[in-house]
Write a protein that binds this DNA or RNA. Structure first.
Length: 545
RNA sequence: GGCCCCAUCGUCUAGGUAGGUCUAGGACACCGGGUUUUCAACCCGGCAACAGGGGUUCGAAUCCCCUUGGGGCUACCA
């Protein structure tokens, strides 16, 4: 039986790194008909936000990653929120204390910081100096009443090297002298990560732990804990890290950082206005610019939008908002530090599940290649079933503020069909807006007008096209195509000379979906109206010049 | 600073665990051409890599060591 888990800390939205970890654990469970658990590690009362858990849940669901045990679905090993498991942790904590495998500490953070600095000055790793005599529960109680912080440390007791048997990296050996007595219970009574994780993995019968390389150094500590408590050690697989274009681990801090830089580089910034848009105070904006604090995501997004800056997508929801498909994300995520060992890249979920294997996890860090992601999305837009694409597109339109949302289902289907080569939904939406603009509200691109309408008899041809469109008995893409091609032939012109004036007339610029589809979707009435407006608007200008 | 991990085209990678079949394969990007009603998409072709230095061996991308480079961790965060 294979049991895996994804154990996020609810500090914000699900980001690329977390999503990949979740996916790999999910794939392994699926492949082996095992169990996949979602466990929320909310032991950091300072950093957790109440909405984050729900956000993570939403994003996992959007990706299609469902859990067998966890929040909202329950399961035999709950509760699945660590904040609700404190009794359990306390029980094992007491056991370690009773066995003299752990002891109380009363240091203040400042004292610890001093010790640490001293160690660094001596070019040494900081090792906590264990007292000769372990403190008692009475000592702890006394210290507490006197206002000292009380923590519990695990007494690292090993004279042998600690060997982590990692699936990806093989045997990794740590000298016991390298591992300091670490805190397992914080002064606020919550367990630390290393402790809660070990207890829960054991109690939830987790067999395989796939996590980022950043946890490799935690593993010896966790193994020591497992040994002291008589627990089994699960199979560990520490994945390579995903690196960002700028170097370093891909981090959710990149978005606020990009915004901060953009604001710093812009000449005229209005703090009040920014604060207002983000629904925060000017002081908060100022503090953000100084790098002291970070506003929440809606505020960041609002400010970026106002300044016209595109922030790098980091969170799963960012990719959704940029018009990526969940299928794209899952497929691309799977290839971040894993591959099937052959030339296959575009793979369905089922294919991913059957070919997934821990032995094929990559050792090398991988850079997150946005261009390749875009190519994947283009591919998925082209090959996804129309019903599925439509359903995703509707979800997308709901989240962005777009006039396209007013389209009925049939129109949306046509739009998708006409945009088969698009890279993202954002591109499709942008190219379709003209369909939902008022006829007299088209924004004419000056360059397009000059090049297409005011030259080469553009307006004259447009007038002929207009009359032919009006005279057509049927109105469909096919009939429109025949008419335009026929006209081009008749006039001994390239189709472009005939089609481009029409294009500019209906959408204001030279870029649109295929012209036959565009005209058809817009409908005869609106098309004629727009042509008339165009002819009227630019005929005069033509004479002047 | 200390500890740990990693090293093949610009990028992601196959090949490395059984050294010869690798004049190193694929994908993205890029360049050139084709198709074409615009932007795309699409089709064809091209460019492009075993970080450096020592070993081991008849033979090394593959094994060992060093150097260099990149990354992670070094919290009462996970």
């Amino acid at each position: 039986m294979v049991v895996t888990r994804f154990a996020p800390s609810p500090t914000g939205y699900l980001h690329i790194g977390g999503a990949r970890t979740a996916l790999f654990n999910w794939l392994l469970a699926k492949k082996n008909n095992g169990t996949f658990i979602l466990r929320i590690e909310d032991t950091d009362t300072k950093r957790n936000t109440p909405t984050a858990t729900q956000q993570v849940i939403n994003d996992l669901r959007w990706l299609g990653i469902e859990w067998d045990e966890g929040p909202e679905v329950g399961g035999p090993n709950g509760p699945y929120l660590q904040s609700q498991r404190r009794d359990i942790y306390d029980k094992y904590m007491k056991q370690l204390l009773d066995d003299k495998k752990a002891y109380y500490c009363f240091d203040t953070p400042e004292q610890l910081q001093q010790m640490r600095e001293k160690a660094i000055a001596k070019k040494e790793n900081f090792i906590y100096p264990r007292p000769n005599q372990f403190t008692t529960a009475e000592d702890a109680e006394k210290a507490r009443t006197q206002g000292h912080p009380v923590t519990v440390r695990f007494a690292v007791d090993s004279d042998e090297p600690i060997v982590v048997n990692d699936v990806v990296r093989g045997k990794v050996t740590f000298a016991p002298t390298e591992i300091s007595d670490f805190i397992i219970k914080k002064s606020d009574g919550f367990p630390t990560y290393n402790f809660a994780c070990v207890i829960d993995d054991e109690l939830m019968k987790v067999t395989h732990v796939i996590r980022g390389q950043e946890h490799l150094m935690n593993t010896p500590s966790q193994q020591l804990l497992q040994k002291a408590l008589g627990f089994k050690t699960p199979t560990y697989a520490h994945m390579s890290v995903t690196i960002s274009e700028g170097g370093g681990k891909l981090s959710k801090r990149e978005r606020p950082k990009a915004l901060r830089n953009a604001i710093a580089n812009s000449s005229d910034i209005n703090l009040e206005k920014l604060a207002d848009l983000g629904n925060i105070t000017a002081e908060q904006v100022d503090s953000f610019l100084k790098g002291k604090t970070t506003p929440d995501m809606p505020a960041i997004d609002a400010m970026a939008k106002h300044l016209g800056i595109k922030l790098p997508e980091i969170n799963i929801v960012d990719f959704f908002k940029s018009g990526y498909l969940p299928e794209t994300m899952v497929n691309f995520l799977a290839l971040l530090g894993w591959n099937p060992g052959n030339d296959r890249e575009i793979m369905t979920i089922d294919e991913l599940i059957t070919s997934f294997d821990l032995s094929r996890l990559t050792k090398t860090n991988s850079l997150f290649d946005r261009k390749k992601l875009l190519a994947f999305n283009t591919e998925y837009i082209r090959m996804l079933k129309p019903e599925k694409l439509l359903s995703h597109f509707k979800d997308y339109l709901k989240t962005i503020d777009s006039s396209v949302i007013s389209a009925d289902e049939k129109m949306l289907e046509e739009i998708l069909k006409a945009n088969a080569g698009a890279k993202t939904f954002a591109g499709i939406e942008q190219k379709s807006r003209f369909l939902f603009t008022e006829n007299d509200n088209i924004q004419y691109d000056e360059k397009a007008v000059n090049k297409v309408l005011l030259k080469n008899d553009g307006l004259a041809i447009l007038e002929i096209v207009r009359d032919k469109l009006e005279a057509m008995e049927q109105f469909s893409s096919e009939v429109i195509e025949n008419m335009l091609r026929g006209l081009a032939e008749e006039k001994q012109l390239g189709l472009g000379k005939v089609a481009q004036p029409l294009r500019v007339a209906i959408c204001g610029n030279t870029v649109s979906p295929p012209i036959f589809d565009s005209v058809n979707m817009l409908g005869r009435e609106n098309t004629l109206a727009r042509i008339d407006i165009t002819l009227k608007k630019f005929a005069q200008k033509n004479k002047e010049s």
